[in-house]
Simulated assay, not measured.
Amino acid sequence: MVGRLERNKDLIQDVVENTARGVGSIASIITDAVADVTREIGDIVTDGLEMREAAKAAKLAERTEERIEAEAPTYDDEPAPEPVTAESVDAPAPESPAVPAEPVPTEPALADPAEPQLAAAPVEPQLEAAPVVEREA
């Protein structure tokens, strides 16, 4: 038979083990809760930072758009062209000035710098043929 001392020892051992397990479970619950709360706070802060960056980007885009609109030419001050009618087509041409216009020199069209240029072949001088003179015999 088990003595009184041994029973008390077993009782105390069970109480301490169960208490330790309970405290461990509580600590685990608290640890998990702290980790979950920390994760949620981090997600909230991340969302806030992303919203702040999006607001900055939207503000920058709005300023850029306003600047482009401000720099764009407006055509409200220019008069509208007169519509073409049958009368205006049949009307006589306006008198030309008495001084003849000088011919405007034309320049060759400028090539697009982005396109590769081909080297021109050298031009050989053209020789004119001498007139053939027939001699009388």
Rank of each mutant, 00 (worst) to 15 (best):
R63E: 12
T38C: 04
R67M: 12
D47L: 06
A80P: 08
E102A: 13
D77S: 12
A111R: 10
P83D: 00
V132R: 04
A54N: 08
E66G: 03
V34T: 05
E87I: 01
G42Q: 00
G42T: 03
P83Y: 03
A58P: 01
P113S: 08
I41V: 14
V123D: 02
Q117I: 09
L60A: 15
E102I: 00
E82C: 02
I44E: 12
P103G: 01
P79W: 00
K59Y: 10
P83Q: 04
L60K: 09
Q126G: 05
E107Y: 10
D76C: 03
D36G: 07
T85G: 13
P79F: 05
A130K: 07
P108Q: 00
V45L: 11
D47F: 05
P79D: 07
A121V: 11
A72F: 10
I68L: 14
P92K: 03
P103Y: 01
T74N: 10
V89P: 00
E134D: 11
P103Q: 01
S96H: 11
T38P: 00
K59C: 02
S88H: 12
A91T: 08
L127M: 05
I44N: 05
E62C: 04
A119Q: 13
P83W: 05
V132Q: 07
P100D: 03
A121M: 07
P83E: 04
